[in-house]
Amino acid sequence: MWRKSLYNELLKIIARPRSFLGLGAISLIIILIQLAMKMDGLSYIQFVTAPLEQNLQIEGTILNGNLIFFIILQMLLIHIPLLVAFLTGDLISGEAAMGTLRTLMTKPVPRSVIFWSKSSAGAIYTFILLCWIAVLGWGVGYALFGSGDLIVLNSEGVVILQEADLIWRFVVAFFQAYLALLTISTLSIFFSCFADNSIGPIVSTMGIVILFTLIGGLDIPILAYLKPFLFTTHMAAWRLWFHDPVPYTDIGISSLVLAIHIIVLSVLGLWKFNRKDILS
């Protein structure tokens, strides 16, 4: 029953024009970044690296496919969560608003199966969205800019990573980013269990992301205690895979915090969904 239910959920996602808005928006953003970098990327890079060139001699092409993909992945913090919430926040509440949840819930399917199949469909969609970013960002980036070493500027300084040392880092960073987006997906499905309209869960999810990001960015001592527990603090943990040496403990902690969020939000969402009165 779970497989059939998941199939139905995926079918609905595929058939909905809304699902392709996310993919379309991502494609547009990525292509715009790549075109802009192709046209004016060198002067932009020189502007950033000019202070470094006083002490370092940089040889080769800094502006390459790896750097472009790294820049594109920065979008993960705000833009991609919005697109994920746009679809997953609608999975339950959108059906409630449309009235189809009423019909669906009269079918001989346990509510938990409906919940998990919707959550899984949301997770699969999120994965496909991320894969699409990889295809466009990395694949097209390589085709347009070629390969090369990656220069990363982080809080501890400049890290230069050899081209041969990059593929595995991008792969694990991809899954780290997926964990962060899965947290967003779970959060918006959780809100979706409480609402009977599409907008509420999307706005609530993005509201939480923005609020937590602001709290995380403030240097106020009392908020510093909260910061390690906020999922937004760990959403950019994929960047840690581009440190040298790789801070495995920090990555482990971030992964654990995100996983706990996913589990807790899923359990609470399921609890609410099982008790939800279908009044729409």
Binding site: M1, K4, S5, Y7, N8, L11, K12, A15, R16, P17, M98, G99, T100, R102, T103, L104, T106, K107, P108, V109
Partner: peptide, 27 residues
């Protein structure tokens, strides 16, 4: 089998696809 208030369907699917979808939830 039931209709509760107005029957709502997935508007972006055809009548047959809607019925196929609901049929898949039958044991």
């Amino acid at each position: 089998g039931c209709i509760i208030e107005k029957p709502d369907f997935y508007k972006y699917l055809t009548a047959r696809q809607n019925l196929q979808l609901f049929a898949r939830w039958s044991p």
